[in-house]
Measured scan of single mutants.
Amino acid sequence: MIFPGATVRVTNVDDTYYRFEGLVQRVSDGKAAVLFENGNWDKLVTFRLSELEAVK
C-alpha cells in the first residue's frame, strides 16, 4: 500500500522517470503525486498507482 510520505520507485519502463525514486505527496483516484528532488530542482509528477512500487 502506498501512502503520503512513502518513498516510491517508478516501475513503468516506458516512462521518462523509470527507476527514479521520490516522495509521495498525495494519493487519490488511483493516482499518486510524487515529488522528485535533485540538487537545485524539484518536480511533482502524477503516476497511476500501478506504475509505482514502495521502496523498502
Rank of each mutant, 00 (worst) to 15 (best):
V55N: 03
E21F: 08
S50N: 11
L35R: 10
T11R: 06
V27Y: 03
I2S: 02
L35M: 09
L44Q: 06
D42C: 15
L49F: 08
M1G: 14
F3L: 11
K43T: 12
W41V: 12
A6L: 10
V8F: 01
R48S: 12
N38I: 15
N12I: 05
R26D: 13
D42L: 15
A6I: 12
V10P: 04
V45S: 03
I2E: 02
V13Y: 07
F20A: 09
V8A: 03
T11D: 03
K31H: 13
N12T: 08
R19S: 11
A32N: 01
E53A: 07
V45T: 04
G30F: 06
E37Q: 15
V34L: 03
R19D: 12
S28T: 10
V10I: 07
Y17L: 07
L49H: 03
F3C: 10
W41L: 11
F47Q: 00
Y17C: 07
V13F: 07
F3M: 10
S28P: 01
E53I: 09
F3A: 11
W41D: 11
S28M: 12
R48Q: 13
V10A: 02
E21N: 05
V55Q: 04
F20M: 15
E21A: 06
G22F: 03
G39N: 09
S28W: 15
G30I: 03
T16S: 11
E53M: 09
L44R: 04
N40D: 12
G39D: 10
V45N: 03
T16D: 11
G5M: 04
V34Y: 01
K31I: 12
V13T: 10
E37I: 14
V34K: 00
L52F: 02
L44G: 03
P4D: 04
V13C: 07
D14C: 12
A33E: 15
N12K: 13
R19K: 12
G39C: 09
L44Y: 06
E51S: 08
N40P: 13
V34A: 00
N38D: 11
Q25L: 15
E37D: 10
V27P: 00
L44K: 04
F20P: 00
V45E: 05
L52N: 00
K43D: 09
G30Y: 05
D14M: 11
T11N: 06
V55Y: 05
R26Y: 15
V13G: 07
